[in-house]
Design a protein around this nucleic acid. Sequence first.
RNA 1: GCGACGGUAGCUCAGUUUGGUAGAGCCCUCGGUUGUGGUCCGAGUGGUCGUGGGUUCGAGUCCCAUCCGUCGCCCCA
Length: 445
Amino acid sequence: MSLIAPKTPPGVMELLPRQQVAFQGMLDTIRRGYERFGFLPVETPVFETTDVLLTKSGGETEKQVYFVQSTGALQQNRRPELALRFDLTVPLARYVAEHERDLVFPFRRYQMQRVYRGERAQKSRYREFYQCDIDVIGKDTLPVAFDAEMPAVIAHVFNELKVGGFAINLNNRKLLLGLLATVGVTLPERQALVLRELDKLDKVGRDAVAATLSSEEARLLDLLGEAGSTDEVLGRLRQLGSDQPQVREGLQELTQVVEGLRAFGVSEQNFRLNLTIARGLDYYTGTVYETFLDACPGLGSVCSGGRYDNLASHYTKSKLPGVGISIGATRLFSQLVDAGLIDGAGRSTSQILVTQLDPALTADYFAIATTLRAAGLNTEVHLEPAKIGKQMKYADRAGIPLVLVMGDQEKARGAVTLKHLASGNQREVSLATVADAARSMLEAG
RNA sequence: GCGACGGUAGCUCAGUUUGGUAGAGCCCUCGGUUGUGGUCCGAGUGGUCGUGGGUUCGAGUCCCAUCCGUCGCCCCA
């Protein structure tokens, strides 16, 4: 019988158990951070009906959607009625429109689930990946203060994740569109093109971008691309003295966001104004965010989002403005592991392995394990008889930090031997105090 | 969808120039060590050389086709 090659489909992240522990730890940290700011959990199905999912899509999005179809429907040649979500924001819009009467506004929700994009896999571009979103949806109105809270939450989470240096880049699309209008760019298609080119500024350089633009557009490019501190950039924008309404409004919002961030106590190191980021052109209408890690300069954003004034407009007549931001957890994890900022090989969930040295003492081993578990320690018994060296090797490879050994010598003394594998420390302790001893050896490392 | 590069052991790769018995390191298993993992030493398992066809006495190696993968473009976390 011929074997089928065991192979994960391209563009997915599949982890070994110890890596999975490390990844779960990261998700736990993000979840704790989101809850610390009072966001509520929501989950939605991985698939939506195609009419819900594709309302918003331009041609690009639709090309990346995976359709879901039953075998029966396939055989009847019917068009798929379901498709996999490609982000969590569109499902959120549907969710809010559908459950509007049962929700409390402003509605603060977090959602950490997998999304799917049918594009060609590349480095740190996955076809299945986790997004960890927070969004706030207002009823009729949503003050700009919420735009400032988003990056404050992210700064808190990234500091908890210990990712090293990071910078949340801030911009405002009203400001950008207003400035474009002042140089005569008012056609949506042209605006989109200029913004897309602007977005590439860091990547391909000023001259390459300017070559695709008119001279007036290029002058604007130089204004937007000029570096400087937060206050310098704001000052420069004010000096323009533009009375173009979108420019005034955008500048005022951006100023409020900066003031809010400072009031929240976010370090100046962790945010900056960057007038060249434009974000996806679909639904953002005001503030936009993109976050970059100092440790991974060449790689893209690991966390981005923005303000949208009319997201749910396809599903309801209610006005439901929102602002949200999303951590790309799969990409973030793989980058942090590559950069050595987190240990990709986590510990086992077992804290202690009770070995079987003497088959006659099996009942004692089980009883000791029960005692340790009752004391709150994750405990595993090596149920398969084997040489003690092999049992230790098992603990070492599985990432179990502590090993318990008891032979008839120890038993006669009412004691057990505990060995901490990483340090090699080994102690004989009284059976009566084994849980406390184990705990202190785990803490000592 | 477009472009570049690449497919040889579970993994990383050498071998291709000049056709001549399929290799190394790591991993894994066992042993050295009958109460001690990780280090060290020894042995062993593991391959239709991506697939199909062609040239040849003989193809991992040369020719043609094809599939798949990686990276980049577009777009995006």
